[in-house]
């Protein structure tokens, strides 16, 4: 009886898991091996820096990264001075000086990454009516996370014949985007950028790096979360074993 009931509970718990995956639709994502997968997963700082380079040199002309401040880049291995230099390349509009005028100043590490467009209307107007979404939470906002991101960026093809007719003007065929028509043109081509660490910049490599970087941007506390988890779980496990032994001992005199 007990086992059956436990099994039933387990099955009923499984019951709601598929609810999450259904939104991914029929598209099969080609899953990548990420350094941050698994119970002890960690970010690969080198990869994150490469990914940041891709974001900065390619994606940042259209996509914002609202939740990342320059100071946060120290978490992926840049020194304080490097972030200062990096920030100073951007200008921030500040309100206001003593005369009440808006003025420009160089960004400092505490500033957030500036958005490429002043507002959403402007962004749409510059992109054929489509809004390039902010990327700082993107991997958590799509089923499949970094795998979706990777597949999306390299998922450009000629539309299959039965779709070719339907393609709207200014739309591109993409294998994983919902509806297969995306307003973002293919962005990555081999050797589009030159990696500062010398890694060959194939489009595959860049897609993987920028996806890893954006996953860090979405979940910057992933490492400390998993590390804390290991310690907490170990402690809880010992607690549970001791509680069990104590329970056996105390119940030894009860017939049941």
């Amino acid at each position: 009886m007990r086992i059956v009931l436990f099994a039933a509970v387990a099955i009923s718990l499984l019951g709601f898991v598929p609810a999450k995956t259904q939104a991914a639709g029929e598209v099969v994502l080609e899953e990548q091996e990420w350094s941050f997968d698994g119970p002890f997963g960690r970010f690969d700082r080198q990869q994150l820096q490469r990914g940041f380079q891709v974001y900065r040199e390619v994606c940042s002309s259209c996509h914002g990264l609202d939740y990342i401040a320059f100071r946060n880049l120290q978490e992926i291995g840049y020194s304080e001075d490097q972030t200062k230099v990096l920030a100073s390349e951007y200008t921030i509009e500040e309100c206001c000086d003593d005369q009440g005028d808006i003025f420009d100043r160089p960004a400092i590490p505490a500033d957030y990454y500036p958005n490429p467009y002043p507002n959403a209307q402007f962004a749409r107007a510059s992109n054929n009516g489509a809004l390039p979404p902010d990327l700082s939470l993107m991997t958590k906002a799509r089923p499949g996370g970094p795998d979706y991101m990777y597949n999306l960026i390299i998922g450009y093809e000629e539309p299959p014949t039965e779709m070719a007719e339907e393609m709207m003007v200014g739309m591109y065929y993409n294998t994983v985007f919902e509806g297969n028509q995306i307003a973002m043109a293919q962005q990555l081509f081999d050797d589009l950028i030159e990696y500062s660490d010398g890694t060959p910049a194939t489009s595959d490599q860049m897609a993987r790096d920028v996806s890893a970087f954006l996953h860090w941007a979405a979940e910057p506390k992933l490492e400390v979360r998993k590390q804390t988890g290991v310690r907490v779980l170990l402690f809880t496990f010992i607690f549970t074993v001791l509680a069990y032994l104590l329970k056996r001992r105390i119940w030894a005199d009860v017939e049941h």
Binding site: F237, F239, T240, V241, A243, Y244, L246, K247, I250, W251
Partner: peptide
């Protein structure tokens, strides 16, 4: 109480 403690652990 001890049985609940074990349950809490699990």
């Amino acid at each position: 109480t001890v049985k609940d403690m074990f349950g809490v652990g699990v």
